[in-house]
Simulated assay, not measured.
Amino acid sequence: MECLFCKMIEREIEPDVVFEDEQVLAFNDINPQAPTHVLIIPKKHIATLNDVGEEDLALMGRLHRTAAELARQFGFAEEGYRVVMNCNEHGGQSVYHIHMHLMGGRRFSWPAG
C-alpha cells in the first residue's frame, strides 16, 4: 500500500507522535497552520469521509474524543480550537486516509476559506 499515513502507522515513516492507542494515532503536522497543529488518524485505512461505514461510527467518535482530550492537554480547550476534516480534491484532501486536523493556540476567523 502506498498510503503515507499507513506507512506512519506501520512506522515505515516515523511521525512526531503526540498520542497513540489501539485505534488512533495523532502526530504533529509537518506544515503547521497554527501554534499547535496535530493530525489525528484512525489506524484503520478509510480513504475518504464518503467511505465511512456504519461499522466505523464508534471509530469516528473516538477521533473526536481524542481531539477534545488533546485540546485539554495542550491547554486551549477552554479558549477554543478548530477541528477540520477535508474530503476529496475540492475539499482540500491531499492524503487519502481520513484524518482530522486539530489546530489551536491562536484565534481563527470565519469563513474558513
Rank of each mutant, 00 (worst) to 15 (best):
C6K: 05
N88E: 14
M100T: 15
I46T: 05
V52K: 00
E54C: 05
M85I: 14
E79Y: 10
A71T: 03
A58R: 08
A34F: 05
E78V: 06
S109T: 14
A68I: 08
T36N: 12
L102T: 07
H45N: 01
L57Y: 10
G92P: 03
L102Y: 03
A68L: 12
Q93G: 06
R11V: 04
E20Q: 08
N31L: 09
I46C: 00
H64Q: 13
K44V: 03
E78D: 13
E2L: 15
I98A: 01
G104R: 08
E78I: 04
Y96V: 01
M60S: 09
M8I: 00
M1R: 10
S94N: 10
Q33H: 10
H64V: 13
M8W: 00
N31M: 08
F108I: 07
E55P: 06
H90L: 13
E22H: 12
F19Q: 05
I98H: 00
I9H: 04
M103S: 11
A26Y: 00
H45S: 01
L49Q: 09
G80L: 09
P111L: 09
G105W: 11
I30F: 03
P32K: 06
A47Y: 07
Q73F: 03
C6W: 08
I9G: 01
A77H: 15
H64M: 15
V24C: 02
P35K: 07
V84P: 03
L57V: 13
R72N: 13
W110M: 11
A71C: 08
P111K: 04
E79Q: 15
E12W: 06
P15H: 00
F5C: 07
D16R: 12
L57F: 09
A71E: 02
A58P: 03
R106Q: 14
K43F: 07
D56M: 02
C6H: 07
R107K: 15
V95I: 13
G53H: 10
S94G: 10
E14L: 13
D51L: 11
Q33G: 12
D29V: 04
V95N: 00
L63F: 02
E12R: 13
R62E: 11
M85T: 06
E12S: 11
G104T: 05
C3V: 05
V95M: 00
G113Q: 10
E54Q: 12
G53A: 13
P15N: 05
T66N: 02
L70W: 04
Q73T: 12
Q23K: 14
M85V: 12
M1H: 12
Q73R: 14
L25D: 02
T36A: 11
A68Y: 07
F108T: 02
N50K: 15
G104A: 09
D51T: 13
V17P: 02
H64R: 10
R82A: 09
D51A: 14
A112N: 09
D56W: 00
E10Y: 07
F74L: 12
P15D: 06
F5H: 03
F76D: 07
